[in-house]
Design a protein around this nucleic acid. Structure first.
Lengths: 139, 139, 139, 139
DNA sequence: GTGGTCTAGACCACC
DNA sequence: GTGGTCTAGACCACA
């Protein structure tokens, strides 16, 4: 029982932020995988365990796992548990890259419609990267 | 009959694209205003007229107009119609700039989580700007 | 024709301000009367004249005059024109006092609900009076 | 059967009083929040529940909730319900203070146009505060 | 069960 | 004719 301290995966989930609960879990797990904190082959907490940790319903966790499995980032084995797929890291990165590209492209479109010239958009990006960098150094 | 074609404001609206119908209308009108095709003081089509043009319900257009009024881009007068506000152009540009910033920041976050370094993100942006430019020259 | 300069009654009417057109006219005329710029017995411009001056429809002016007549502030004589009633000044003042009282009472209720104590409300009022005073000295 | 009486949030809504139905609901809920009877994080009744309680359409309640969410006083989560935002109390008080200020300023303007001098307006305010006080002691 | 969107159609006030 | 409010009832996504 010296193991009382369980490694909590994921920050806290809250209904008070935009995005549905299960989407928050999906995003959080993708981040864990893409940033290497969850390595291919390693096991994920059980539905019940994670649900308890995050104070959400088991069903919500189940949905999140289902979506991740559909994307090929994790796989489930009857009676054994849930694991990060071998290609999980790459698939997760890929998904994030796609998302990033879509978001940046949308941002560029909006900025262009607001009248910003390409050079100005790049300047804006540099500012954003700057902020993001200092923010990253917080932990 | 070749004169059937009346000057339509806004491209066609479709339930098949991402974003709700009324959001598509809001975005489209914001674009018209921010890019100067609808000038301050000029009148917008009536609910019923635009609804007919876009093949959506009157209510859907109404909701869109409500949101634009809330943002101070247009104003509505009983019995008179709906008009572009004096500050409509600026407010619309502002809103677009805010949206752009949010989207770009999200994109940066995703890209960073996927492991891209700031320099790589900037490179990605240059590519996107390049595509966008050639796309702009289509008409 | 040296009379080109006609005495314009009322500031400009605009659809770009809150309140319907005819209500703006009613309010404006009430103000003229209650502040003594239109004296009892003096004549008001004709429908057509005022409509032309204010760039609104004759019907809109007509409605405004009807409302003022209903309130006993003006009266109309077939073929002669429209005049400020003898009691017009008093009635107009009365109406304004009633309106003022209602507005102030509503303001007090809101302020109380926001947690302001009577003394604080009075303090707020002093500030408002101060602003109003300096504003009044503009002309 | 004497237990039929369930704790109703908000007084009865009526089409007979000034202000639209949904505005009455908005005001009522703002009051609940600004006066602390609805605390941050606590949940509001569902659309359908409140609609039933108040004998209005579900849609009318929806509109009210939409406006409150826009003002940042509450937030809504699909499948979970509607909750008072963390800053709900402050935002609600702020909104009320703004409203109070606007109303008082309009009242002052009307009173000034009716010829009341600042000192007289303050005197009028004192009377109003007096009435309001005794009215407050009713329950 | 919750909220989110879209639809239809009523009635009113104003121009 | 315009916008403003309220109503009814559909279907979907999420928990």
């Amino acid at each position: 029982m010296s193991l009382e301290r369980k490694k909590m995966i994921l920050g806290p989930i809250s209904p008070a932020v935009p995005g549905t609960l299960y989407q928050q879990i999906v995003d959080g797990l993708k981040r864990e995988v893409s940033e290497g904190r969850l390595k291919p082959g390693s096991s994920l907490p059980s539905f019940r365990q994670l649900a308890e940790d995050l104070l959400v319903s088991v069903i919500t966790v189940k949905r999140a796992y289902e979506e991740l499995e559909r994307e090929g980032i994790i796989y489930r084995r009857q009676g054994l548990g849930t694991f990060v797929a071998e290609q999980g890291h790459d698939r997760s990165r890929e998904a994030k890259l796609n998302a990033a590209q879509t978001l940046l492209a949308s941002g560029v479109r909006e900025a262009a419609e607001a009248g910003l010239k390409p050079a100005e958009i790049l300047e804006l990006m540099r500012e954003i990267l700057q902020e993001n960098k200092s923010y990253d150094q917080r932990d």
